[in-house]
Simulated scan of single mutants.
Amino acid sequence: MQPLCRDHPQPQSFDRVLSSMCTRPHPDAVAAATEFLTTNPGDPMTYQSIAKIESKAVNLLADIVGEPTATGYITSGGTESNIQAVHAARNRSATKTPNIVAPESLHFSFNKAATVLNVELRTVPTDEDHRADLTAVENAVDEDTVLVVGVAGSTAYGRVDPIPELTDIAHRVDAVMHVDAAWGGFVLPFTDHAWSFAAGIDSLTIDPHKFGQATIPAGGLLVRDPSLLDELAIETPYLESPTQATLTGTRSGAGVAGALAAMEALWPHGYKETYERTMYLAERLETELSTRGFETVTPHLPLVAADIPRELFTALRSEGWRIATTADGTLRIVCMPHVTQSLCESFLSDLDRLRRAGNSA
């Protein structure tokens, strides 16, 4: 690939990326995204081919999450999906002082949603296992609560909240129950976690451009009842289609086509193999870090958290490792599909060398 000009940087390599929740897209996704790059799903009557592809993509997402009758649309990612979930729940309610209740492990997109939509955001503590504290949620909801959020694959620790219990709390106050499975949605079908529509939830975020291995941008918003999606409908008088439920208007068909191509190539066997391989890597990496004396958090999904000295973290970054920390400073490593055993071994080798050089307390 030639750069746009002599001084233009080359694309980021994934060779040392251990912090991202995105990954190399599947080759079929790249090809499909390129083919439909200039189509606009926001004008479905004009661009009918990409509209049909989006319908197929939503149907396949519904199969993946175990609710074949679910409906929705392909978003730009988890942020748009979560904002739209809050948007729909707010519009559904008659209260003039709406609030949403979410655990402190929530994604920052809910802070954006609360600000943009003028909705009070009530965050509650998590328990010792970094999952939503049910008592705290119960105490936070009231008659003005329009949405309760559960996280299925938290960005910090890869935890899955007690979704059935949160759903019960939400429905007791007539609130919508939303699950943010942006990262976890493509691995959770191969686990025993109760996380999706079978748990009684109303709406769900799931991102094909993360573990789904689609091209960016490609998120997904799914709802059980189409009437919830109808709460988002806006009239579009100059288009052939009368209304639009999306947050954006014009959208590139690249994300839509790439999402369908990746899912058709990988569901279910490819995703199952990826989950098993990355989960094995996460468990092995956690064991290796624990053996070296670092305090770790047992992985429930392919994400490793370990408490390492800041000096060592900084030294690893200076060696080119793309790593990150949680809000409390804990190292987090996400075992995405591009992460291999040799990559993990190389990381541990550099970690050991830098420790010997005195980059640790």
Results as ranks from 00 to 15, higher is better:
residue 2 Q to W: 13
residue 2 Q to F: 10
residue 7 D to Y: 15
residue 12 Q to L: 13
residue 16 R to K: 05
residue 26 H to Y: 04
residue 28 D to M: 06
residue 33 A to E: 11
residue 34 T to S: 15
residue 35 E to H: 15
residue 38 T to M: 14
residue 38 T to S: 15
residue 42 G to N: 05
residue 43 D to E: 13
residue 45 M to W: 04
residue 45 M to D: 10
residue 49 S to N: 03
residue 60 L to H: 06
residue 61 L to E: 00
residue 64 I to F: 09
residue 67 E to N: 11
residue 70 A to L: 09
residue 73 Y to F: 15
residue 73 Y to C: 02
residue 74 I to G: 02
residue 76 S to W: 10
residue 77 G to V: 07
residue 85 A to Y: 09
residue 88 A to D: 00
residue 96 K to V: 14
residue 100 I to K: 01
residue 104 E to S: 02
residue 107 H to G: 08
residue 115 T to V: 08
residue 115 T to E: 15
residue 123 T to F: 00
residue 129 D to N: 14
residue 130 H to P: 12
residue 130 H to E: 14
residue 150 G to R: 09
residue 154 S to L: 04
residue 155 T to P: 04
residue 170 A to H: 04
residue 177 M to T: 12
residue 179 V to G: 07
residue 181 A to N: 02
residue 189 P to A: 13
residue 195 W to V: 11
residue 198 A to H: 10
residue 199 A to Y: 08
residue 199 A to P: 08
residue 201 I to Q: 01
residue 205 T to V: 04
residue 208 P to K: 02
residue 208 P to C: 02
residue 209 H to T: 04
residue 212 G to S: 09
residue 218 A to P: 08
residue 223 V to I: 09
residue 232 L to S: 12
residue 233 A to G: 00
residue 235 E to R: 10
residue 237 P to K: 02
residue 238 Y to H: 15
residue 250 T to K: 13
residue 261 A to Q: 01
residue 266 L to S: 03
residue 266 L to F: 04
residue 274 T to C: 07
residue 276 E to G: 11
residue 284 R to H: 13
residue 288 E to W: 00
residue 293 G to N: 03
residue 295 E to T: 11
residue 299 P to H: 06
residue 301 L to V: 06
residue 302 P to T: 12
residue 309 P to E: 01
residue 310 R to M: 11
residue 313 F to M: 14
residue 327 A to P: 10
residue 328 D to Y: 14
residue 330 T to H: 09
residue 335 C to V: 14
residue 337 P to D: 07
residue 339 V to M: 11
residue 342 S to I: 09
residue 346 S to C: 06
residue 352 D to K: 04
residue 352 D to M: 03
residue 354 L to S: 13
residue 355 R to F: 07
